[in-house]
Simulated assay, not measured.
Amino acid sequence: MHGTQQLEKSAESGEIMMSKLLADIEYKTAEPIDVPMIKQAGQLQQTIWGNEAVTAFPEMMAIIRNGGCLLVAYHREQAVGFSYSFPDYSAAAGKAYLCSHMLGILPEYRDRGIGMRLKLEQRQWAIRNGYEKIVWTYDPLESRNAYLNVCKLGGTAASYVESYYGESRRGIPMDRLVLEWDLQSSRVIGALDGRKPAVPDAEGLSKLVSITAQGAPEKHSFEAGQQGYRVAVPPSIQLLLRENPELAKEWRFALREALVPLLNAGYRITSLQRDGESIHYVIEREAGCTS
Protein backbone atom coordinates (compact mmCIF):
# COMPACT_ATOMS: atom_id res chain seq x y z
CA MET A 1 0.00 0.00 0.00
CA HIS A 2 1.34 3.42 -0.95
CA GLY A 3 2.15 5.86 1.86
CA THR A 4 -0.78 8.22 1.15
CA GLN A 5 -3.28 5.37 0.94
CA GLN A 6 -1.90 3.84 4.13
CA LEU A 7 -2.24 7.17 5.96
CA GLU A 8 -5.83 7.62 4.74
CA LYS A 9 -6.74 4.09 5.78
CA SER A 10 -4.99 4.59 9.12
CA ALA A 11 -6.83 7.85 9.83
CA GLU A 12 -10.16 6.29 8.81
CA SER A 13 -9.64 3.39 11.23
CA GLY A 14 -8.97 5.79 14.09
CA GLU A 15 -12.05 7.86 13.27
CA ILE A 16 -14.30 4.78 13.21
CA MET A 17 -13.07 3.77 16.65
CA MET A 18 -13.41 7.31 18.03
CA SER A 19 -17.04 7.56 16.91
CA LYS A 20 -17.90 4.66 19.22
CA LEU A 21 -16.48 6.31 22.33
CA LEU A 22 -17.86 8.80 24.81
CA ALA A 23 -19.11 11.91 23.00
CA ASP A 24 -19.32 14.47 25.82
CA ILE A 25 -15.57 14.58 26.54
CA GLU A 26 -13.44 17.19 24.78
CA TYR A 27 -9.80 16.43 23.93
CA LYS A 28 -7.21 19.17 23.56
CA THR A 29 -3.56 19.14 22.54
CA ALA A 30 -1.33 21.47 24.55
CA GLU A 31 0.82 24.05 22.81
CA PRO A 32 3.69 25.86 24.57
CA ILE A 33 1.41 28.87 25.12
CA ASP A 34 -1.19 26.74 26.95
CA VAL A 35 0.30 27.24 30.40
CA PRO A 36 -2.95 26.56 32.34
CA MET A 37 -3.44 23.24 30.50
CA ILE A 38 0.11 22.12 31.28
CA LYS A 39 -0.38 22.98 34.95
CA GLN A 40 -3.70 21.09 34.98
CA ALA A 41 -1.86 17.99 33.73
CA GLY A 42 0.52 18.32 36.68
CA GLN A 43 -2.42 18.62 39.07
CA LEU A 44 -3.98 15.48 37.58
CA GLN A 45 -0.72 13.60 38.16
CA GLN A 46 -0.71 14.67 41.79
CA THR A 47 -4.36 13.70 42.30
CA ILE A 48 -4.02 10.31 40.63
CA TRP A 49 -0.60 9.18 41.88
CA GLY A 50 0.62 11.61 44.55
CA ASN A 51 3.48 14.08 44.73
CA GLU A 52 6.23 11.60 43.81
CA ALA A 53 4.83 11.11 40.30
CA VAL A 54 4.45 14.77 39.31
CA THR A 55 6.52 15.92 36.32
CA ALA A 56 7.92 19.41 36.83
CA PHE A 57 6.22 22.16 34.83
CA PRO A 58 9.47 23.35 33.16
CA GLU A 59 10.18 19.79 32.00
CA MET A 60 6.74 19.37 30.45
CA MET A 61 7.05 22.75 28.76
CA ALA A 62 10.47 21.87 27.32
CA ILE A 63 9.27 18.50 26.03
CA ILE A 64 6.21 20.02 24.34
CA ARG A 65 8.53 22.47 22.59
CA ASN A 66 10.84 19.65 21.45
CA GLY A 67 8.75 16.94 19.86
CA GLY A 68 6.60 15.76 22.76
CA CYS A 69 2.83 15.67 23.12
CA LEU A 70 0.46 16.51 25.98
CA LEU A 71 -3.24 15.70 25.55
CA VAL A 72 -5.85 16.63 28.13
CA ALA A 73 -9.44 15.33 28.33
CA TYR A 74 -12.09 17.74 29.62
CA HIS A 75 -15.60 17.17 30.87
CA ARG A 76 -17.51 20.45 31.07
CA GLU A 77 -14.21 22.34 31.29
CA GLN A 78 -12.86 20.13 34.10
CA ALA A 79 -9.62 18.29 33.31
CA VAL A 80 -10.36 14.60 33.92
CA GLY A 81 -7.55 12.76 32.12
CA PHE A 82 -4.34 13.23 30.17
CA SER A 83 -1.57 11.53 28.24
CA TYR A 84 2.00 12.75 28.12
CA SER A 85 4.75 11.58 25.75
CA PHE A 86 8.25 12.58 24.73
CA PRO A 87 10.51 11.78 21.75
CA ASP A 88 13.12 9.05 21.90
CA TYR A 89 15.49 7.52 19.37
CA SER A 90 16.31 3.98 18.29
CA ALA A 91 19.92 3.62 17.17
CA ALA A 92 19.16 0.16 15.76
CA ALA A 93 16.30 1.44 13.59
CA GLY A 94 17.87 4.83 12.95
CA LYS A 95 14.54 6.52 13.69
CA ALA A 96 12.86 8.63 16.33
CA TYR A 97 9.75 7.31 18.04
CA LEU A 98 7.34 8.63 20.65
CA CYS A 99 7.63 7.34 24.22
CA SER A 100 4.24 7.47 25.94
CA HIS A 101 5.29 8.16 29.50
CA MET A 102 2.04 8.77 31.38
CA LEU A 103 -1.68 8.26 30.89
CA GLY A 104 -3.98 8.98 33.81
CA ILE A 105 -7.72 9.39 34.37
CA LEU A 106 -9.56 10.50 37.50
CA PRO A 107 -11.11 7.45 39.24
CA GLU A 108 -14.69 8.65 38.75
CA TYR A 109 -14.12 8.94 34.98
CA ARG A 110 -12.56 5.54 34.37
CA ASP A 111 -14.24 2.80 32.32
CA ARG A 112 -15.86 5.35 30.02
CA GLY A 113 -13.59 5.00 27.00
CA ILE A 114 -11.40 8.00 27.81
CA GLY A 115 -8.15 6.03 27.96
CA MET A 116 -8.80 4.49 24.54
CA ARG A 117 -9.66 7.88 23.07
CA LEU A 118 -6.49 9.44 24.48
CA LYS A 119 -4.43 6.71 22.80
CA LEU A 120 -6.21 7.29 19.49
CA GLU A 121 -5.74 11.04 19.71
CA GLN A 122 -2.08 10.45 20.55
CA ARG A 123 -1.73 8.17 17.55
CA GLN A 124 -3.20 10.71 15.16
CA TRP A 125 -0.95 13.44 16.57
CA ALA A 126 2.11 11.18 16.20
CA ILE A 127 1.31 10.34 12.56
CA ARG A 128 0.80 14.02 11.70
CA ASN A 129 4.17 14.79 13.25
CA GLY A 130 6.13 12.10 11.42
CA TYR A 131 6.36 9.33 14.03
CA GLU A 132 5.90 5.70 12.96
CA LYS A 133 5.89 4.11 16.41
CA ILE A 134 4.79 4.81 19.98
CA VAL A 135 6.32 2.82 22.84
CA TRP A 136 5.17 2.54 26.45
CA THR A 137 5.39 0.17 29.40
CA TYR A 138 2.77 -1.70 31.39
CA ASP A 139 2.64 -4.22 34.21
CA PRO A 140 2.53 -7.75 32.71
CA LEU A 141 0.22 -8.81 35.54
CA GLU A 142 -2.45 -6.28 34.50
CA SER A 143 -4.48 -8.46 32.15
CA ARG A 144 -7.00 -5.72 31.51
CA ASN A 145 -4.32 -3.29 30.35
CA ALA A 146 -2.72 -6.07 28.34
CA TYR A 147 -5.97 -6.74 26.47
CA LEU A 148 -6.34 -3.05 25.61
CA ASN A 149 -2.73 -2.68 24.52
CA VAL A 150 -2.35 -5.89 22.53
CA CYS A 151 -5.81 -6.85 21.27
CA LYS A 152 -7.74 -3.58 20.97
CA LEU A 153 -4.84 -1.32 19.97
CA GLY A 154 -2.81 -3.95 18.11
CA GLY A 155 0.50 -3.47 19.94
CA THR A 156 3.05 -6.20 20.63
CA ALA A 157 5.66 -6.69 23.35
CA ALA A 158 9.14 -8.13 22.84
CA SER A 159 11.00 -6.75 25.84
CA TYR A 160 10.65 -7.38 29.60
CA VAL A 161 12.34 -5.08 32.11
CA GLU A 162 12.79 -6.40 35.64
CA SER A 163 12.20 -3.95 38.53
CA TYR A 164 11.62 -1.06 36.12
CA TYR A 165 10.50 1.17 39.01
CA GLY A 166 12.22 -0.72 41.81
CA GLU A 167 9.89 -2.34 44.34
CA SER A 168 6.40 -1.46 45.52
CA ARG A 169 5.59 -0.69 49.14
CA ARG A 170 4.60 -4.35 49.50
CA GLY A 171 8.10 -5.39 48.41
CA ILE A 172 6.98 -6.69 45.01
CA PRO A 173 9.28 -5.84 42.07
CA MET A 174 7.60 -3.46 39.62
CA ASP A 175 8.44 -5.28 36.40
CA ARG A 176 7.25 -3.90 33.06
CA LEU A 177 6.67 -5.09 29.52
CA VAL A 178 7.66 -2.69 26.74
CA LEU A 179 4.73 -2.30 24.33
CA GLU A 180 5.44 -1.30 20.73
CA TRP A 181 2.67 0.31 18.68
CA ASP A 182 3.54 0.41 14.96
CA LEU A 183 1.06 3.12 14.08
CA GLN A 184 0.34 2.36 10.44
CA SER A 185 0.93 -1.39 10.32
CA SER A 186 -1.81 -3.64 9.00
CA ARG A 187 -1.99 -5.25 12.44
CA VAL A 188 -2.78 -1.96 14.17
CA ILE A 189 -5.20 -0.77 11.48
CA GLY A 190 -7.03 -4.10 11.68
CA ALA A 191 -7.26 -3.90 15.48
CA LEU A 192 -8.69 -0.37 15.30
CA ASP A 193 -11.24 -1.64 12.76
CA GLY A 194 -12.33 -4.18 15.36
CA ARG A 195 -10.52 -7.22 13.96
CA LYS A 196 -8.55 -9.14 16.57
CA PRO A 197 -5.00 -10.05 15.52
CA ALA A 198 -4.74 -13.55 14.05
CA VAL A 199 -3.07 -16.05 16.39
CA PRO A 200 -2.26 -19.76 16.21
CA ASP A 201 -4.77 -22.33 17.43
CA ALA A 202 -4.57 -22.11 21.22
CA GLU A 203 -4.81 -25.87 21.61
CA GLY A 204 -1.58 -26.23 19.64
CA LEU A 205 0.44 -23.99 21.97
CA SER A 206 2.25 -25.33 25.01
CA LYS A 207 1.41 -23.77 28.37
CA LEU A 208 4.43 -22.49 30.27
CA VAL A 209 2.30 -21.19 33.14
CA SER A 210 -1.28 -22.18 33.98
CA ILE A 211 -3.56 -21.24 36.85
CA THR A 212 -4.67 -23.71 39.52
CA ALA A 213 -8.14 -24.00 41.02
CA GLN A 214 -6.79 -22.02 43.99
CA GLY A 215 -5.66 -19.18 41.73
CA ALA A 216 -1.94 -19.90 42.01
CA PRO A 217 0.52 -20.10 39.11
CA GLU A 218 1.57 -23.56 38.00
CA LYS A 219 4.81 -23.66 36.00
CA HIS A 220 5.46 -26.21 33.26
CA SER A 221 8.65 -27.41 31.61
CA PHE A 222 10.05 -25.35 28.76
CA GLU A 223 10.63 -26.95 25.35
CA ALA A 224 12.63 -24.60 23.17
CA GLY A 225 12.02 -23.99 19.49
CA GLN A 226 8.23 -24.10 19.29
CA GLN A 227 6.27 -21.60 17.19
CA GLY A 228 4.35 -20.28 20.16
CA TYR A 229 3.48 -20.65 23.83
CA ARG A 230 0.83 -19.65 26.34
CA VAL A 231 1.42 -18.04 29.72
CA ALA A 232 -1.45 -17.56 32.17
CA VAL A 233 -2.04 -14.23 33.90
CA PRO A 234 -4.33 -13.65 36.92
CA PRO A 235 -7.74 -12.16 36.00
CA SER A 236 -7.45 -9.35 38.57
CA ILE A 237 -4.05 -8.57 40.05
CA GLN A 238 -5.46 -5.59 41.96
CA LEU A 239 -7.90 -7.86 43.82
CA LEU A 240 -5.06 -10.27 44.49
CA LEU A 241 -2.85 -7.48 45.85
CA ARG A 242 -5.58 -6.53 48.33
CA GLU A 243 -6.49 -10.05 49.41
CA ASN A 244 -3.27 -12.06 49.07
CA PRO A 245 -0.10 -10.02 48.42
CA GLU A 246 2.13 -13.07 48.77
CA LEU A 247 0.27 -14.86 45.99
CA ALA A 248 0.55 -11.70 43.86
CA LYS A 249 4.31 -11.80 44.44
CA GLU A 250 4.37 -15.46 43.41
CA TRP A 251 2.65 -14.52 40.15
CA ARG A 252 5.22 -11.78 39.54
CA PHE A 253 8.11 -14.22 39.58
CA ALA A 254 6.23 -16.92 37.67
CA LEU A 255 5.60 -14.55 34.76
CA ARG A 256 9.12 -13.17 34.93
CA GLU A 257 10.66 -16.64 34.76
CA ALA A 258 8.45 -17.58 31.80
CA LEU A 259 8.53 -14.41 29.74
CA VAL A 260 12.11 -13.17 30.06
CA PRO A 261 13.83 -16.13 28.36
CA LEU A 262 11.18 -16.28 25.63
CA LEU A 263 11.36 -12.61 24.73
CA ASN A 264 15.15 -12.66 24.92
CA ALA A 265 15.10 -15.57 22.46
CA GLY A 266 13.21 -13.56 19.84
CA TYR A 267 9.59 -14.22 20.70
CA ARG A 268 6.89 -11.55 20.97
CA ILE A 269 3.58 -11.24 22.82
CA THR A 270 0.90 -11.00 20.14
CA SER A 271 -2.43 -11.65 21.84
CA LEU A 272 -4.42 -12.66 24.91
CA GLN A 273 -6.82 -15.58 24.87
CA ARG A 274 -9.46 -16.73 27.32
CA ASP A 275 -9.61 -20.44 28.09
CA GLY A 276 -12.67 -20.94 30.28
CA GLU A 277 -11.97 -18.76 33.32
CA SER A 278 -8.26 -18.50 32.52
CA ILE A 279 -6.53 -15.74 30.59
CA HIS A 280 -3.30 -16.46 28.70
CA TYR A 281 -0.71 -14.42 26.89
CA VAL A 282 0.04 -15.78 23.42
CA ILE A 283 3.75 -15.58 22.60
CA GLU A 284 4.96 -16.19 19.04
CA ARG A 285 8.22 -16.23 17.18
CA GLU A 286 9.30 -12.77 15.99
CA ALA A 287 8.85 -13.77 12.34
CA GLY A 288 5.22 -14.68 13.00
CA CYS A 289 4.13 -11.21 14.04
CA THR A 290 5.38 -8.98 11.25
CA SER A 291 2.74 -6.93 9.53
Rank of each mutant, 00 (worst) to 15 (best):
G194Q: 08
P200K: 13
Q214V: 04
D201E: 08
E167H: 15
A157S: 15
E162P: 00
A232F: 06
V178Q: 02
T212W: 02
D193H: 09
R187P: 02
A198E: 09
D275G: 13
L208H: 08
Y281E: 00
L262Y: 05
W181M: 05
Y165M: 09
D193W: 04
R256G: 06
A146Q: 07
R230M: 15
S163R: 13
L179M: 12
S210W: 03
A248P: 01
S271F: 03
A232L: 09
S185F: 06
D182G: 10
L205Q: 05
S236L: 02
A216L: 04
R242C: 08
Q184F: 11
Q273L: 06
G204K: 10
V150G: 05
R170C: 08
A191F: 05
A248E: 00
G276E: 09
F222K: 06
L208A: 06
A232R: 05
E243P: 00
E284N: 13
G194I: 09
G166F: 08
Q227E: 12
H220L: 12
R187E: 08
S206H: 13
T212H: 02
K196T: 09
E162L: 06
N149L: 06
A248T: 01
E250L: 07
L263P: 02
A258V: 10
A157Y: 07
E180P: 04
I237R: 01
R230C: 12
S210H: 04
A157W: 04
I172W: 04
R274P: 00
W251D: 01
A254M: 01
R195G: 09
G204N: 09
Q273Y: 04
E223W: 03
V150H: 04
P235S: 14
L192E: 02
A213G: 11
G225W: 13
N264S: 15
S206G: 07
A158N: 15
R169S: 15
S186T: 12
L148K: 08
G228N: 12
S186W: 05
A191C: 04
K249Q: 12
V209K: 12
E180M: 15
V233F: 05
G204Q: 10
Y160F: 15
L179S: 05
I189H: 01
A158P: 07
E218H: 13
Y160C: 10
W251P: 02
V209H: 11
S271W: 03
R230L: 14
A157D: 12
D175Y: 02
